[in-house]
Design a protein around this nucleic acid. Structure first.
Lengths: 240, 240
DNA sequence: CCGTCACCTGTCCGATCGGACAGTTGACGG
DNA sequence: CCGTCAACTGTCCGATCGGACAGGTGACGG
């Protein structure tokens, strides 16, 4: 694959209106570099066992289901390492600490049944601020991917991540669920201020501050102000 | 500039150990496309006036200082629109709603004194989950940047953002400031659970839950559990 | 002209938090 | 063998939150 093919892909990205068309385009491009499968998903951070969110699923039929059902994400060295770094890496480069566990080897063993032997992972910050990883998988026993090809894959990966992101937040033009005052109150609360402190900062009555916080809670349908703050951060309405 | 130049840049990125060397490399590359200046900075989200964080500063001497001191970020159409979208755009494409304000036109006017007339902005999620923008600036009166060149700039921009990110979080290998239990407690607190609810979920005494939360607060040197949660999210120790 | 809505304010009170005190247990490394 | 540290548990109490009650103002559009 030559450099301009990558840019052809990048240019086509603009036109993809659905995750599906993006996925098939990306799969085609990856195939030219020897990677038949790929997946873009969130990674579980330290100790969390929540099922990660899948953004693009280009894994072999069956393998994906097996992986999810067996909760492989929690022990897969590739997945764990993806949560620790932001640099792209070959699966073979995962530190022994995570790849040489019994559980991780079992995952790798099962993968071969579906024609997956090696791969290249590109960690990134994706949708909703979650750390994600786009993993390219190959049936080749080992891959010594030249720098240039790595750079090409990374470029397509982070671009695809960006498109997925853009597809998932469309309604940015509207005013959003929170008023400016509500955002302000949440922001100061996130900074550790009490209601009375915030009231002095903003020149309001303490009661008013608590009232705005209550409105923010209602807007998100949550019980605590902390939850409202987390939600507002997730939706990029404020940044702490 | 040909496609392979971009990949040369991408490959060189691996070797940049400081933001300074990355910046000069990026400036050189941008110049080939007609953009003499650039800046990578956080953007203020709705109603916030906090000074955005500057990651890479390649703006003309003087203009940067003026911009910050006059708090132009709060009224600059390019800056405001960068907070609303994740798609790259030419400065001339900023919707009138934000670009046609008196204040925004004043900013654009002042910029010409420093040889900045047009530009291309690439919004992204950068360090610490903040929405950021890499703005390329040109002295050309108007730029009709072909798609291909836009794709090249975007590629370099998001790659540079990734590198800045990687440079800023180095100590990912260590255990981090929080234990697994502390993360768990924060996670449930972020989900709106009270201490007693969390104690039942985790099978602990309520006192213990509060104690873990206290440890987490200490670890970050903050006063409230909410602050600890926000900090943990910012540092990507948990994702809510 | 009147409804709607953001914005603002007040009181009352039980639930919850956060700080300060004082411990036990088990694992791990020097 | 002993120090250290994560993990765990307890009581007491003032500060704070969150829910429920009941309002007033100004702007904006139908």
């Amino acid at each position: 694959m030559i450099d301009s093919d990558v840019f052809d892909f990048v240019e086509r990205c603009r036109n993809h209106a659905t995750a599906g068309s993006l996925l098939s385009d990306l799969l085609n491009a990856a195939k030219k570099l020897g990677f038949e499968h790929l997946i873009l998903s969130g990674v579980p951070l330290g100790g969390q066992k929540l099922a990660p969110m899948i953004e693009l699923n280009g894994w072999p039929r069956g393998w994906f289901e097996r992986y999810v059902e067996a909760e492989h994400a929690a022990v897969d060295g590739v997945c764990i390492y993806s949560a620790k770094t932001l640099k792209p890496f070959l699966w073979s480069e995962v530190p022994a600490k995570w790849s040489e566990t019994e559980a991780s080897r079992r995952v790798a063993g099962e993968a071969t049944e579906f024609g997956i032997r090696s791969g290249f992972a590109v960690p990134m910050l994706s949708v909703h601020h979650w750390q994600s990883v786009l993993s390219f998988a190959s049936s080749a026993k080992s891959c010594e991917l030249p720098r240039r090809q790595q750079a090409q894959l990374v470029t397509m990966a982070i671009y695809a991540g960006m498109i997925v992101q853009a597809l998932s937040d469309d309604d940015k033009d509207g005013d959003g669920p929170l008023t400016d005052r509500e955002k302000e109150v949440l922001l100061w609360a996130a900074a550790g201020k009490t209601s009375s402190e915030t009231s002095q900062i903003l020149g309001l009555a303490e009661r008013t501050v608590k009232w705005h916080a209550a409105r923010a809670r209602e807007a998100f349908g949550v019980a605590t102000t902390t939850q409202a703050i987390v939600e507002a951060v997730r939706r990029r309405l404020i940044h702490p």
